[in-house]
Write a protein that binds this DNA or RNA. Sequence first.
DNA 1: TTGTAAGCGTTATCAT
DNA 2: ATGATAACGCTTACAA
Lengths: 337, 337
Amino acid sequence: MQKVTMLDVAKAANVSKSTVSQYINKRYQYMGEETKKRIQQAIETLGYQPNYLARSLKQKRTSMIGIIIANIMHHLSTEVIRAIEDYCHKYDIHAIICNADDNPEKEKKYIEMLKAKQVDGLVLFPTGENTELYEQMVREEYPIVVMDRKVEELTGKVPSIFVNNREATCEAISHLLDLGHEKIAIITEPLTISPRIERVEGYKQALRERDVAIDEKFIINCEKMFMQEKLDELFSYPEPPTALLAGNDLVFIEVQKYIKRKKLSIPNDLSLIVYDNIPHAEISTPSVTTVSHPAFEMGEKAASLLIRQIQKESTPIEQNEYQCTLIIRETTGPKLY
Amino acid sequence: MQKVTMLDVAKAANVSKSTVSQYINKRYQYMGEETKKRIQQAIETLGYQPNYLARSLKQKRTSMIGIIIANIMHHLSTEVIRAIEDYCHKYDIHAIICNADDNPEKEKKYIEMLKAKQVDGLVLFPTGENTELYEQMVREEYPIVVMDRKVEELTGKVPSIFVNNREATCEAISHLLDLGHEKIAIITEPLTISPRIERVEGYKQALRERDVAIDEKFIINCEKMFMQEKLDELFSYPEPPTALLAGNDLVFIEVQKYIKRKKLSIPNDLSLIVYDNIPHAEISTPSVTTVSHPAFEMGEKAASLLIRQIQKESTPIEQNEYQCTLIIRETTGPKLY
DNA sequence: TTGTAAGCGTTATCAT
DNA sequence: ATGATAACGCTTACAA
C-alpha cells in the first residue's frame, strides 16, 4: 500500500524533496525541462501519489467543508447538498455530509468531529439547541453559513439563507380559498423550529386576510408517529376539511398513508398542497401541488458565501431570503371524475 | 480559530506534550490523579480540540473510508450508504461518499482523491471501465469491497457483494405468467453492466421455462432519454404488452411519465413490476409490486468486510450473494375498477 | 535553478 | 509516573 513518498521520488529523480514538491504544485517557474521530465518519470514508475494529509497539516487548510444537515430525510436537504457539492467541486473542495437526525447531541458531536478533522468551514442546518457551541464558533470566527432555521445566537452574526415561509404559505392557502375551500387544515411537525412556526403564521394570516374564521382544530402540530390518529380525528368532525396543507415532505408521507388507508380520492374528496420539493410531484398521479424551494440557488449561495469566508474575502453578514413558489398541479385541480 | 495546540495545554497544565497525549488517548495507566485533573482543567479553559489531521499523519490511519457510488440517484445506493454509515459509526469510522455519476473519469478521479486523502479503504460500486486502476488496487492490497456490479478484474480477488438478479427476475416474470399475462415486456438501461444483463437473462429464462415465445420487440434496452419514444413504439404494436417490468427505479420514473402521459390505469391497462427498492412503493396508489434488495444487510456486510480488511483480519475473498425478493402489491393485483 | 532545514500537531519510543 | 525526542510526509523560506 501507499508507501512511496516524496523522498522516494526525489531519490529516484536525483533531486531534492523540495524540487519534487515544486513540481507537484506546478510551481515550475524556473525548473529545468530536464528535471521536470525526470521527476515525472519517477512519479510514474513509482506510482507516487501525494499525501494530502501531510499537505493539509502544513498548509492549515484541508480543502474540505462540512455540511451538517438537521435531517437528511428531507428532500430539500439532498437537493441543497447536491448544489453545494457541485459548486465546491469547481474549487476543488470536498464536502463532508453529516446527518444530525434532528438530534442536538449528534449535531454537537458532528460539529466537533468536523472541526477536529480541520474542515475549513461549515454549512449548518441547525437544530437550534446547541447555543454554547454556536456562540463559540461565532467567537472563533469559524467560517459558517446557516440555512433554513433561524436561531438567535447566529442570526445577524453569520451569513444566512432562509426562505419566505410565511408569505409562501399565505399564498398557498389563498389559492385554496380562491378555489372555494373554506375548511382548510394544516398539519406540521411540532412547532420547535422557525420554518414550521412561520408556516402556521402564514396559514393564519391568509385566513384572516379573507375573513375566514380560524378553527384551531384544523391546525395540527404533532410528531409524525401520532399523525394517523390526529388525521382520523380531523376527518371525523361534522364538517371535515376539504383541503389540507402538509407542512413538509415527510408529513406528506403520513398524509399519503392516511389517504390510502381511507381510500380517499384526490382531489375529489380532498385538495392537497405539500410544502417542500418532493421528488415525484410532477409525474405521480395525481400530480402534486407544492410550495417549492429554489433549492439549487440556495445551495449555490451557501457554498459561495462559505468559500468567500474561507478565502478571507469580506463576506456580508446578511440574511438572504429566497422565495418559495406555489406550483399548482392536479391535487388542487378540478375534480377528476 | 483553532490555534490552541497540545503544547499550549501542556504548558498550562505544567506537564509535557507527551503526558497530554497520553491523557487524550486515555492511556492513564500510571498517571497521577492530580495530573489528570490539571490537564482536564487546562483543556477546558483553553477549549482545546485535538487535531485529527496530525494524529492521522502519525498513525497512518484516518478512520475514514470512502464509498464510490456509481450513481447516487438509485435509491438502492442511498440505502446501502446509510447502512454502511451506521455500521461504521460503531467503529468511529467516518464514510466519505462520492458519486461517480456512471462516469469512469469521475470514478478514477474520486478513487485517486480518496486514496490521496488516505482513507483506510473503499466500498466500490464500479463503473467497470477503470481496469488498470482496479488492478493496481488489488496489487497494492488496498482494502476494498465491491458491490453490485461484477467486473472481471476484481471478482475473485476482493470480497464482493452481489444479488441474484437472474433468479429474482425470473421469479417476477413467473408471477406475471401466473396471473395470466402472456405479453410481457422488460425495459432497462443499456446492457453495459452485469446486473442489467442478468435481469434480461432472468426474463428470458422465465419465458423459456413456461414455453412462452420470446419476442425481442418486448425487450427494450436504451438510454433513459429515449425511453418515451421506445415506449410509444412498444404500445403501438397490434398486440401490446399487458405487463411490464421496469429494470430499475430510474427506469420506473420514465415508465411513470409514460403512464401519466397516456393516462393508463394501473393495473387495469397494464400490470407493473419494478426492480429495485423504491421509496413510496407501499404507500403510493396503487402500491407498487417490486423486486426488492436487502439493502440494509448488504450495506452492513460490506462495511464489516471492509473493516475486517482494514484491521488486517483475515477476510475471505468470497462473493456474497444476497437474495432479492418479489413483493407483490397492487400494480400486479386484481383489476381495480 | 535546486538544495537545506525548519516546522505543521500529533504519537511513540525510550529514558528518567 | 512523566519528559525528551524523533518521526509522520509535506511545504516553504532562505541559502547556495
